[in-house]
Design a protein around this nucleic acid. Sequence first.
DNA 1: TTGTAAGCGTTATCAG
DNA 2: CTGATAACGCTTACAA
Lengths: 345, 345
Amino acid sequence: MAKITLKEIAERLNLSPSTISKALNDSYEISEKTKKKVKEFAQEHNYQPNPLAKYLKLGKTNNIGVLLPSIRTPFAAQLLQYLHQSAIYNSYNIILMQSIDNEKDEERALITLTNQGVDGILIAPVSETSNLQLLSSIHANHCPVVVFDRIHYNLDTHKIGIDNMKSTYMAAEELIKINRKNIMVLCGKNLGVTQYRLEGYQKALKDYSIPIKEENIIHIDYSKSLTTIDESLKEIITGRMCSDDAPNAILGTTETLTTRVLGVLADLKIQVPKEIAVIGFSNIEFANSLNPALSTVHQPTEEMASTALQLLLDLINSKKERSQIDFQTILLETSIQLRKSTALT
Amino acid sequence: MAKITLKEIAERLNLSPSTISKALNDSYEISEKTKKKVKEFAQEHNYQPNPLAKYLKLGKTNNIGVLLPSIRTPFAAQLLQYLHQSAIYNSYNIILMQSIDNEKDEERALITLTNQGVDGILIAPVSETSNLQLLSSIHANHCPVVVFDRIHYNLDTHKIGIDNMKSTYMAAEELIKINRKNIMVLCGKNLGVTQYRLEGYQKALKDYSIPIKEENIIHIDYSKSLTTIDESLKEIITGRMCSDDAPNAILGTTETLTTRVLGVLADLKIQVPKEIAVIGFSNIEFANSLNPALSTVHQPTEEMASTALQLLLDLINSKKERSQIDFQTILLETSIQLRKSTALT
DNA sequence: TTGTAAGCGTTATCAG
DNA sequence: CTGATAACGCTTACAA
């Protein structure tokens, strides 16, 4: 790959490889004069140190693995962008993997990452129990792991995410405030966060003495295609809207569901927010371009990304035994951004 | 990082390292019996070969660098997802970089990638001339480079993207068909593709004998924040709509501009498509959730990604001298998806 | 069929 | 201040 090696420079300058190495690394043992000569020569000949050799010697790669369920949602893309920024800032590179919300792919990705050699792994696990054993063993033997976003996961390490229950509670509260109390909640099937987000919804209803109806709790299979999701939504909504107690609000617990339901409602000619108000999780940057502008529960992606990375770097650089560290779980605050989809006036 | 090494296995089994290596690599020189013994032992002790050592020896990393302007647009996220799929399928990993549409960051990313060691680079360059020299030298001395998406770039290598002129021509034609001939075109400033997309617009108007008005050609500075983009759009649109010859259609030449303008129009209470029809480049998956459902020029991201990757792998694996290869430029077909934002009934 | 030895390109230790 | 030597963990001629 690179053209000229350290050894060759040494030969050409009649110096030893170790001198060259030290000179290029600005060692105090080398005279300014030699340093200058070596550096100039290296520059001229466009010397690029072979990273593999260096890292082999040093025992680290400066790569960190990032494993996301999908890189295709706006939330993921944002997160990834900020992770990348923080990584570069700290002289680390990101090797990207996606699990497509599927344990098998998650396992494959983890194995690839460890085979490839990364100094640490940042993961949003598929489900609460997915690949727990593998991940534990990686964390114990291979490289540190930090869990983010999907933090309900039984691995003893740093975790960073949001308070899922509280966030949904707040969102439900907004609907209740505008007197929309017959709230349909859209959940992803088998997602680690679903349960907690659902609990927030249930608690809010309970606190405001609103009866919880099973028919209002919808689980959508997430592993299917977007068209399938749309179709399921359409069928369910059509059914519910024709029933005696048609809901007058929708709370989406995931970005995909929240955003896509708007398209389905438009298609069904159901007016938002007049007939049905909508609020839900989403970090979409086009919220204002949606039909109508969408009220969202917004996650602090930048903070989540930079903190997650920092936690991972701390573990990578820590001299302590992994068992000596007391791991923390950080919950970041979400914010509610109200827009037209919940504006009744 | 890994726990047990090849050498240690050798000691424990009273065999030589080379035997172990060959056994694990299924060499024909090794007896089935030994192979079995070695493999079982390796499995039990959870042996992970050190990738760095291996790649140092073999002279390749199995990593390819992907350098995108941004990873935050739906188009980029899709592309990245498909690139990742293809890469994994071919046993390559992706190291991700973004240039934030900025030459300096692009240069930094390229240097990092080469320092890090990648077997090839896939790049969508910032502009037509950005880092041309650096990239040429990388392509010549370091590892093969394939240009994608932003293919108007003077590097002699494989390129894959779309026919920008034709695509905009088609989009403009759709507007003309519905008799919306006073078309405002939104362009990004300093983007490599802008010129060609603009030419398509101009050619369409010319072919249909529609006068081209300079006031209808808008250039938006892309390097600014999203809010700044929105503000610029708002100001310009307000101005144009109050003028004597208010446009009755908008053609967006980039995903960000096309999608965001919908939010701005909604904000200004300008009705789409009644007052102004909108069409433009975008691969957004929520097109139906937009206000209104957006007519788009859709790029075949999956094909672009898998072909780009294939072209790069071909170069990586090619025995030929770089100068012996005749490089090709592949133009993929785009498709127009008509939705409500251009539906006049 | 197995083992020996050299080498990939660096860096670290220690001696000169 | 500079250099010799060993080592990181693996692969691969070549030798046995």
